[in-house]
Design a protein around this nucleic acid. Structure first.
Lengths: 314, 314
DNA sequence: TCGCCGCATAACCCCCAGTTATACAGTGTG
DNA sequence: CACACTGTATAACTGGGGGTTATGCGGCGA
């Protein structure tokens, strides 16, 4: 019935005082205005402008329209501006979730990068292990998740999508064996899991434990899990006390050092991929995209751990 | 860029939860919604809805649009409603101007009629003699004027328009001669102006005075104007005191009676037309039109004064 | 009285926004 | 595990709304 262009015309007529001037101010020709007014009048069933000789004036109905025109056009303008701000990274919000050990270096660095480039973009950050973060992503409570996948089993690898998600590999994280420095294997250059078939094991998060069991099974034994904790600092503490051995991603060992603990490469090598996950649509939201790029950039600064191949050729 | 239909669609998607449901609720087909969203997205340069499997959700930008959609659509709705109210005579304002003696019966009756039929229509009323009321009409300060025209000389007659105005004759008002009941002509059935060439005259408003002079000139003399007042009650008072004679419209004599005053028909008869004047555009404004009709109806209740022809045949 | 300025109208035309038809993807269920 | 159901995306087509140019007409000022 009434549309925005019509209101713009009404407003222009009101302020300019003539059809011709209104047309000029809107970039139209004069007949366009005449027709627009006529259409609107016969649609509304009442006169909205009073043609008095060479000048035109709004009738009461026209003034009603002009009054509401301000509201409507202002709202449209601010909507457009706000969306443009989001599109232009002058605004926007990203709900980021990452697993605890990514929170240590990768995420803070990426957050800093985004904040430096786009100060108006706000990123809310929640720690969560991959299963929860992916659930949150699925349910719409999260825009971008930093997760990890062990050796391509847990979730898809590379640029592939998992369950409709889009995942980008940020970096590869070599899994190492953590033993007490007095452990019988502490001086070795590397170890196989079979060497530790009888040691008590300390398991991390459920997925990590799953990975541990899987690797040990491949090595021909079932690990005796003596302790279980999601906190890697605690894991290191347990190892430091000589209470057991553990598999710990290299990324953790770079941030949490412990003098009593020695980290050995394992053979065959095992890695986890640290990935950024989002949906195809959210990946195209500017703020999310920018955060994604910042994560990739932050990951690039952290040197990749030597690959299994490079390790064995040493 | 952003238009009202698009906002309607966004809102529907938000509330309905799917394109199909939104389409159904708006009476569109599903592809229409798909295309609309796509268009909007590429126009705005950002993603608006996140397609997650079988369900869709608004992104941050989409939520911004949905939020403003409420403002815009509400404003449009209320604008439409207000205009419809004006068009349907459930609202509206008429600025009416009438000359003093019309205010006595004609206008009050018309106002009452309008108020009874359309209680929500408000009529503001200002007394003004024809020249001022027509000026106000021309300048936009008045929507409808009740004026008078002496014998088709002052302003156009009948349905003709004067200066782009539209005039409708409400009633014909016979001009009579008012004399003191002791006047030498008081017992006559009628009089000619020539009979009163030597009497002192009492003149009314400027236009009335003009008319008096014009009639007397036709009768071959120049009237001696002893008193001049715009107030017809005062005119009658002067006549009652025997201070002079006056020409007074019949309409006045019907409302203001004075025992000392006798009103005689004059020969040749002279009348003034009481007309309702507005512009072509304003005449199509429902409230103005309704008031105009009410004026005509009110005039019909007041019996026409006998015409000059009927009088002379008596 | 003439000329300029501004609105109205007619004829034309293009593009946008719908429609139908159909393919494709995700999600439960036998 | 496959199938059916439900929902979105895409393609091709079509109609009409809304703009343009050209022209007429009326009011206002010099």
């Amino acid at each position: 019935m009434i549309d925005a262009p019509a209101l713009r015309v009404i407003r222009a007529i009101d302020t300019e005082g003539s059809f011709t001037a209104a047309a000029a101010s809107l970039g139209f020709t004069q007949p366009a205005i005449s027709q627009m007014v006529r259409r609107l009048e016969q649609r509304l069933g009442t006169v909205i402008v009073e043609r008095r000789g060479r000048t035109v004036h709004l009738t009461e109905a026209g003034q009603v329209l002009a009054r509401h025109a301000a509201t409507v056009l202002n709202a449209l303008d601010s909507a457009e501006e706000e969306v443009a701000a989001i599109a232009g990274l002058r605004a926007g919000r990203v709900r980021l979730m990452a697993f605890p050990s990514a929170s240590a270096t990768l995420v803070p660095r990426a957050l800093a990068l985004v904040k430096a480039r786009y100060p108006e973009v706000t990123i809310s950050f929640t720690e969560a292990e991959p299963p929860e973060s992916l659930t949150a992503l699925r349910s719409g409570d999260c825009d971008l998740a930093v997760a990890f996948a062990y050796d391509g089993v847990d979730v898809g690898r590379g640029e592939e999508d998992l369950d409709g998600f889009v995942a980008t590999v940020l970096l590869e994280d070599e899994v190492r064996l953590a033993v007490n420095r007095n452990h019988r294997l502490a001086q070795r250059e590397s170890a196989t899991l079979a060497d530790l078939a009888d040691d008590p094991w300390i398991a991390g998060c459920p997925r990590c434990r799953g990975h541990l069991v899987s690797l040990c099974t491949q090595a021909g034994f079932a690990p005796g899990v003596a302790y279980e904790t999601e906190d890697y600092v605690a894991v290191l503490g347990l190892v430091a006390e000589g209470l057991g051995v553990a598999l710990i991603p290299d990324l953790i060992l770079r941030t949490v050092h412990h003098p009593e603990v020695v980290a050995l490469p394992i053979r065959p090598g095992s890695r986890r991929s640290i990935i950024a996950v989002t949906t195809a649509d959210l990946g195209r939201v500017p703020a999310v995209e920018a955060t994604m790029l910042a994560l990739e950039e932050a990951a690039r600064v952290i040197p990749q751990t030597p690959t299994c191949a490079a390790l064995s050729s040493r």
